[in-house]
Nucleic acid binder design. Sequence first.
DNA 1: TATGCGCACTAATGCGGTTAAGTACGAGGG
DNA 2: CCCTCGTACTTAACCGCATTAGTGCGCATA
Lengths: 370, 370
Amino acid sequence: MTAPGEAARRKPARRPTIKDIARRAGVSESAVSFALNDRPGVSQETRARVRRVAEELGWQANSAARALSGERAGALGLVLARPAQTLGVESFFLQLVSGIQEVLSARQIALLFQVVEDLGTECALYRRWWAERRVDGVLVVDPRTEDPRPELLAALGLPAVVVGGPATPGPDPSEPAAGPAAAPAHPLLSTVWADDAKAMARVLDHLYGLGHRRIVHIAGLPGLAHTARRIRSLRTEADRRGLDHRQVHSVTTDYSDAEGAEATRRLLDAERPPTAIVYDNDVMAVAGASVAAERGIPVPGALSIVAWDDSALCRVTHPRLTALVRDTPGFGRLAAQELLAVLDGGPLRTVQGELPHLEARESTASPSPR
Amino acid sequence: MTAPGEAARRKPARRPTIKDIARRAGVSESAVSFALNDRPGVSQETRARVRRVAEELGWQANSAARALSGERAGALGLVLARPAQTLGVESFFLQLVSGIQEVLSARQIALLFQVVEDLGTECALYRRWWAERRVDGVLVVDPRTEDPRPELLAALGLPAVVVGGPATPGPDPSEPAAGPAAAPAHPLLSTVWADDAKAMARVLDHLYGLGHRRIVHIAGLPGLAHTARRIRSLRTEADRRGLDHRQVHSVTTDYSDAEGAEATRRLLDAERPPTAIVYDNDVMAVAGASVAAERGIPVPGALSIVAWDDSALCRVTHPRLTALVRDTPGFGRLAAQELLAVLDGGPLRTVQGELPHLEARESTASPSPR
DNA sequence: TATGCGCACTAATGCGGTTAAGTACGAGGG
DNA sequence: CCCTCGTACTTAACCGCATTAGTGCGCATA
């Protein structure tokens, strides 16, 4: 034993290879490879012996070597394109990632996770990962209405699944003609998605049922596909109930607390302010509730509030916020499974996640008559 | 062009290798390798020509091949051990990761990010990454007072940097004897850390200066090293000012909004409740503010609140919360740089991040006389 | 008894890089 | 004029694994 600090750190600590196993088991390297990969060509006894030796030595395949010969990187990628300062607060992504990894780690597949500033950088990163063969496939999040990524990924031949899609290609999607279950799949990539339209309908059912007729939806970024879907759904639901687009409509923001608060102020300053507001994320909902408190507007007495996505935030405010709850880790699991299916040569599919449910809390009630 | 969907997806899309470059440039593969890696052995003209060809072909080194021969995986790892349901809300990690990647992506180094349930799984993952040669090093977050990870990593010879350390090895650290700048480094790994002791002193300066004499610190998980440091610092600062440990003390929680609220309730129910509470994260601070609101206790009139770590949360409450602001992405950059330095054979070091500053907002004021 | 066949295994090759060990050539020195 | 030396390359070996093409052997078949 030398000085522990330096010695421990510099120790080469050679890792066992199949050659070591071969020597110890008294067979050739290829026999070891066959044995460990469940390929025919070795007897049951030899297979068992090799396995035992591998176990003893604590052998794990060198991922680089396996990738080089096996043509599989053993890793998937996920890029989050967000300006640094809008990061955080939302619990959505860590939960999604946690669900994804539940599926991947069982298969010994790693996840490359990267946060970048914008879509352009994201695309460049896909190209690089592809060229470097870093990943076998990627999960595409935050699909947009005009999204360059599916085309790029299809052109590269990099397997991918769009999470939160379908991103409707083009800005002019026709009104859903048939049942809403038959969603238009993105033609290039597999997709897992939640039915925002139905979820929005549920929210409207709840608020309309309580008697609300002036309902505003403070949406997130206008470029995102799910924002578009929610806005469209709100309009459809309003029409169905014969509500005017001045009574029921959406405004878009950048998801930040600042814009959420600002939009709320503007709405409350209007001549006939809404009696209910639906916020596209928890942060804005809390910010909105705070604006109401600031102005002495009682919630839910004079204003009902719904948050799209639940989190601790919605439970720490006073009153607690009614929220659309979805199983985000479950959604991540679904996405990961679908990507693995694509990697295994499965067909392009559009898979629908669980429908979110509305958790009614104290921030929604019947509007006071006026 | 065939049917775009299937065809695009299945396209093999062979990526260029150095062999292709060699052929096009009319030199051997090793000359190409020399040229591209800034090694001597090729003339300036050849180097330029090879570079140009590589550029034209859009060549990027196959990371697996490079890892296999170069002995470098070109990737670092970061494991977050958290039960799935406590994930999220906190913006800390995504910001940290974003800072880390700013440094790594410039060097074409990838980050393997994994969320696991507990420390045991985290250790197992380190072993696996090490055995698979997946990563060249790891960033260890959430250092604990009794932490098995540094020892494990040192034993494996896997380079690492402790982020948020130094984790004082053993439960019995002597009181800082010399200047607080000379922090005890963890003997096995490099460390980047923020001086929680000084930060806590600043918080106490602020509150004591306002006239507070009954101050409680609602801390996070007791096992974490920084929790211990903050608690110790609070005690030191109290002693220095001759304050009783019944007046000024810490209680620990699991960081959740629920425990934060619960602890707050208990404190406010006491005979002589504190006039100021310092919360170890933003979520608990907001939860605590909500409890005060629920009971009609005016903030800051009857209770001052300080949040450790700023975020949108602290700005959406009413009043906005005084918070300790730190540059988390900057901290991530620092950590990444330090790990790269270790990989380059640098010495074990203990690097200190920027001291957080106290952003005084409306949630702190002089206590009302009673 | 020669022939064919399946089984269990070994030898050889390749993946795409890096790198140590040559080699060819021109310049400079004795 | 020969020898050395440095430069600019090329050849070959290697990293650890997967895979393909043998190889030897026992056994059923003709």
